[in-house]
Amino acid sequence: MGKFSRASGCVLALLLCAGLAFAGGAAEAKPAAEAGGQSTVALMWGGTDAPFVGPHIRSFTETMEKAGYKVVVPDSKWDPAKQSTDVDDMIAMKVDLICLVPVDPLAIIPALKKAKVSGVPVMTINTEADKSANEYIIGFSGVGAYEQGLVASELLVDAMRGKGNIAVVEGVSGFNVCVLYAKALDDTIKKKKAAISILAVQPTNWSPAEATKITEDYITRFKNMDAIFAHDDYIAGGVIVALKEAGIKPGQIKIVGVGGTGDALQAIKDGWMFGTVQQSPITEGAFEARRALEFLKNGKLEPFYSIMDNPRIDASNVNKYKAEF
């Protein structure tokens, strides 16, 4: 009669022991967290599963750890609401600095306000929050998605010699970076008075497989497509697969991406891609970590903005770049 419940009691006990062991183990691995007074920095990405994020976290963490800091990385799962509550957690943990990539430029503002009131400094990194958040943060370091979009757009205009038709393979509809890229493309076309029209914009959820599908449909639909703007190099890879399978020759349709992945550099050498915008997560992670360290040492951040270069990579200079990621 009691056999089942005894067994289940044992399972429960085991589970609790496992929980204890795991908690204890984690505590042992990082002994100085609170007791030893070691300083902690929070690295808050919108989500942690995107390919760019993994290498960035590693590079940022390595740089911080070398300087004797601990790094805590919450996972906001690309949800602005979760990110704002994660900020609450970091405030409760009394971290010394929050380095935050806003999932959404506006949604994060109230959380930044709370951090400011609670005396926890925040530096936005990678992508900026809305300018109206500037009074709540100590500064911004990163790449500037809009500026990046401008470089990519210039590449596109050059690739098409100022006239033709572009199809866009975007990341996620309404996602901050994608909105900024779209704006940069519009602005560039207007500024350069280029005779370029945008044939279509379709989302991929950052998936190369989706990019392949959408490109297949573009090829069927648009006989007059001269160039494709892929919102990152990973989805540009998916675009190339579709072009190859359709028997299209390298360079026949110009592809521009963003990133500078090893795959993209190779594609530029092979003529499949016209160009891309360099954004190495490894360089960027270390760069932002150094800015964080500067603040932690001096108690202030000068200048407020520190924006990394967005070098343009095309066939003329591709050999200068090493595949980092």
Partner: peptide, 15 residues
């Protein structure tokens, strides 16, 4: 959500 984020977009609340 509005009281916390004071904003809205199609990318919120996916999960």
């Amino acid at each position: 959500l509005l009281s916390r984020l004071n904003s809205a977009s199609g990318t919120y609340g996916i999960d």
